[in-house]
């Protein structure tokens, strides 16, 4: 598993463990006592590192190449899943995966941004950066969900919508904007999870939800820390300061009233145990869908409207 730069002290301990193991096999000597001791030390170091992550380090965890992806999570969480393709207008965008699924008594439409775990898959998925047809596929599936009374589950994990010539020609802005407006009108519940990177409008384009959860080491921001640093701080290398200033971590997003809850991750990040993470998400989905079962269509829509209507901090002497 790829270690992140700030995990360097761990790398040294892991190296030592590997050396001792090799030595113990080759020399046929029992070093299990020593190995155990260093393993214990490593676990302690890992705990120390992960209880004090800076926002910029959390960004690195959120972007870890082995972090659980949407497609894998869907298959771990749901009993059945049938992937559906295409926006019926232009094409099928591999950067967004979606389809119909079941979970116990619930029938849902589920979708999310799709990243890869290696270069080849990442190129195929465009690093999780959708083109307009991705958002239009998402909209088509959500409209179908609304028609057939199926709750909508979305997984957010994108650096942002793709900034390319063709994306602009085909109306990236329009595709996202339309989703924002249409999602506000659906009468089925929408529950969203930021599982990795919540990158700007490209994230929000499938994120106008009744309830929003952040994974513990996920981030959600209006612009990437690098982008913010290069525009406001005039130095892309100051992304650590920008990450801190923008308040992008799960606890901050909850504190600002944007997210409703946090899904805990195993020590060291979600990439260490996909199964545990998927179980926590599954429980959250079930709990949320049970809550919405008793609400009327109008109540579901009003709850979502009220949530977003209240977002904003300003001075109003009139109130």
């Amino acid at each position: 598993m790829k270690l992140l730069p700030f995990e360097k002290p761990l790398a040294e301990l892991y190296d030592k463990i590997a050396q001792l193991r090799k030595l113990s096999v080759e020399g046929n000597i029992d070093l299990s006592g020593e190995i155990e001791k260093i393993e214990g030390r490593a676990e302690q170091v890992r705990k120390e590192i992960y209880t004090n992550l800076t926002p910029n380090q959390i960004v690195q965890v959120a972007r870890h190449p082995h972090r659980p992806d949407t497609d894998s999570l869907i298959r771990l969480i749901f009993d059945t899943f049938v992937e559906l393709h295409g926006d019926r207008l232009f094409g099928d965008d591999p950067a967004i995966v979606g389809g119909i699924a079941t979970l116990g008594q619930f029938r849902v439409v589920v979708m999310g941004h799709q990243k890869g775990h290696d270069t080849k898959e990442n190129i195929r998925r465009n690093f999780g950066m959708p083109n307009p047809e991705g958002y239009r596929k998402a909209l088509r599936l959500m409209q179908m969900a609304d028609r057939f009374r199926m709750p909508i589950i979305t997984f957010i994990d994108t650096p942002g919508a793709y900034p390319g010539i063709e994306a602009e020609e085909r109306g990236q802005a329009e595709a996202i904007a339309r989703n924002l407006r249409e999602m506000a009108g659906f009468t089925v519940p929408i529950v969203s999870f930021v599982i990795g990177e919540g990158g700007s409008g490209g994230a929000l384009g499938i994120g106008v939800a009744n309830r929003l959860y952040m994974l513990q080491n996920a981030v959600y921001s209006v612009i990437s820390p690098e982008g913010c640093a290069s525009i406001l701080f005039r130095d892309a290398k100051k992304s650590d300061i920008a990450a801190d200033a923008m308040k992008i971590t799960a606890p901050e997003i909850v504190k600002l009233g944007i997210a409703d809850g946090i899904i805990p991750e195993p020590l060291g990040g979600a990439h260490h145990d996909w199964k545990v993470v998927s179980q926590s998400i599954q429980e959250a989905i079930q709990a949320e869908l049970c809550k919405f079962k008793d609400l009327s269509e109008q109540e579901i829509k009003s709850q979502r409207y009220a949530k977003f209507r209240a977002m904003g901090r300003f001075l109003d002497p009139g109130i």
Partner: peptide, 24 residues
């Protein structure tokens, strides 16, 4: 979006678009 207001500025996109849904 106004970066100095962080995620809150992003949410104004959803808030204004939601109002337009009601208008429509």
């Amino acid at each position: 979006a106004r970066m100095q207001e962080g995620i809150m500025s992003l949410m104004q996109m959803a808030k204004t678009s939601a109002a337009l849904e009601r208008l429509a």
